[in-house]
Amino acid sequence: MIVHGNRFTFKPGTTPEALDEALESLRNQGRSIPSVRSFVVGRDFGGEYEWGATFVIDDLDGYWEYLIHPSHRHTDRVGLPLVDTFASFDITDDDDPEMEQKIAALHQRRYDADAELTQLVSDLGEYTGSAAPGRHGK
């Protein structure tokens, strides 16, 4: 099982309507992507981020389905332009010693196939973690 998470802070001046649209789009990912077993979208307490989302997925095939699903792509388009700082992480109970590299490779494959997404991510004020472009599991 893989728990994929995102922590983020919106840019100053983000309207309440735009914030609501981005958060609802994240929730829609959880409802609409078949490989998502459960999800949480809400306030992030105890750190430097304001909001967070986690998605529980069975395996790498499901993770790929999650990454390329149209509802995820929609969230990228409506949400990323509003985000200032962003961090991603993955937690897994899989003992595969190459799991970190495999997850990073899925993200890199997605960036390589989507120039618009790559630009949206490049425009973020700060982006760290397992899904950051060029990370390759390092």
Rank of each mutant, 00 (worst) to 15 (best):
Asp90Ile: 14
Asp93Met: 12
Pro81Lys: 11
Asp93Ser: 13
Phe86Met: 08
Tyr66Phe: 15
Asp90Ala: 15
Asp58Ala: 15
His72Ala: 01
Thr54Asp: 09
Tyr63Ala: 02
Thr54Glu: 14
Gly62Lys: 00
Gly62Thr: 02
Gly62Glu: 00
Asp93Val: 11
Glu98Pro: 03
Val83Met: 15
Leu67Trp: 11
Trp64Gly: 00
Phe89Leu: 08
Leu82Asn: 03
Trp51Ile: 12
Asp59Lys: 03
Asp61Ser: 09
Asp90Gln: 14
Tyr66Thr: 04
Ile57Gln: 02
Pro70Phe: 12
Phe86Leu: 06
Pro70Asn: 08
Arg73Trp: 04
Phe55Asn: 06
Thr85His: 11
Pro81Cys: 06
Trp51Tyr: 15
Val78Ala: 03
Pro81Arg: 06
Phe89Gly: 11
Ala53Leu: 13
Asp93Glu: 14
Asp96Tyr: 08
Asp58Phe: 09
Ser71Ile: 12
Ala87His: 07
Phe86Asp: 00
Arg77Pro: 01
Trp64Leu: 00
Asp96Val: 07
Thr92Asn: 05
Thr75Arg: 00
Glu50Val: 10
Leu67Val: 11
Pro97Asp: 00
Phe86Ser: 00
Phe89Thr: 07
Asp76Glu: 09
Asp61Gln: 08
Glu50Asp: 15
Asp96Ala: 08
Ser88Glu: 08
Pro97Arg: 06
His72Phe: 10
Glu98Trp: 10
Asp95Leu: 15
Asp59Leu: 02
Val78Arg: 04
Leu60Thr: 01
Gly79Arg: 03
Phe86Arg: 01
Ser88Pro: 09
Ile91Cys: 07
Leu67Arg: 11
Leu82Lys: 05
Tyr63Lys: 04
Trp64Ser: 00
Thr75His: 01
His74Trp: 07
Pro81Phe: 12
Ala53Val: 12
Tyr66Cys: 09
Thr75Gly: 00
Glu65Tyr: 11
Trp64Thr: 01
Trp51Glu: 13
Gly52Ala: 12
Phe89Gln: 09
Glu50Gly: 15
